[in-house]
Design a protein around this nucleic acid. Sequence first.
DNA 1: TAAAGTAGTTTATAATATAAACCAAATTTC
DNA 2: GAAATTTGGTTTATATTATAAACTACTTTA
Lengths: 96, 96
Amino acid sequence: MFKELNPLLHSELRLAVMSVLISVESADFVFLREQTGATAGNLSVQIDKLQKAGYITVEKGFKGKMPRTTCAITQEGVAAFEEYVAALRSYIGKGI
Amino acid sequence: MFKELNPLLHSELRLAVMSVLISVESADFVFLREQTGATAGNLSVQIDKLQKAGYITVEKGFKGKMPRTTCAITQEGVAAFEEYVAALRSYIGKGI
DNA sequence: TAAAGTAGTTTATAATATAAACCAAATTTC
DNA sequence: GAAATTTGGTTTATATTATAAACTACTTTA
């Protein structure tokens, strides 16, 4: 009847991060913070969880002298996102 | 960019309950438990939250000698569900 | 009448989300 | 050029949430 909703994606902020990353090649921390409206602390934690799940890659480098964290979605991440969306259908029907 | 997801509906079990109730006139506790696969304890708690939010009505009566709890979605509940679905769109795009 | 089942509720615990507090380096202001 | 502010984050403390386990109250069956 109802498909299970991947709890790692069933989180407002993590879902927003994935939503941004699925449509771009990569995005840095500041961009993600701006797009999601999240606090830096919350974003930092959620990025970490997505990375540990293998859904995104996180690279830390420098742009000039300032630190810069760049994130990108993995194939596994794309697959998980698509599966999550498919599972949602079982709750909200075709109405969406 | 991203619309807020009503936290009362952004819960796997509560969403499932609402999803059942939106398509029937009413449903009793046992039916909801069967459809959602939830434990009785969890279902009891989540039904309570939905009722307190005004999204469903809960009537307690008897079927023969056995207690029976009947739930139905309210207009407010329907509106909240539809708004939640609309908000989801901002996260999952046209993909769904 | 004892055991098992039904229909739930209450409560304890673990997991989660979130913001506040913090840190280090860079930049600006006085 | 020292102090204050900003940038780009991380760590940690707290409040909320989800969940199952334990329990209640009653009914049915053996």
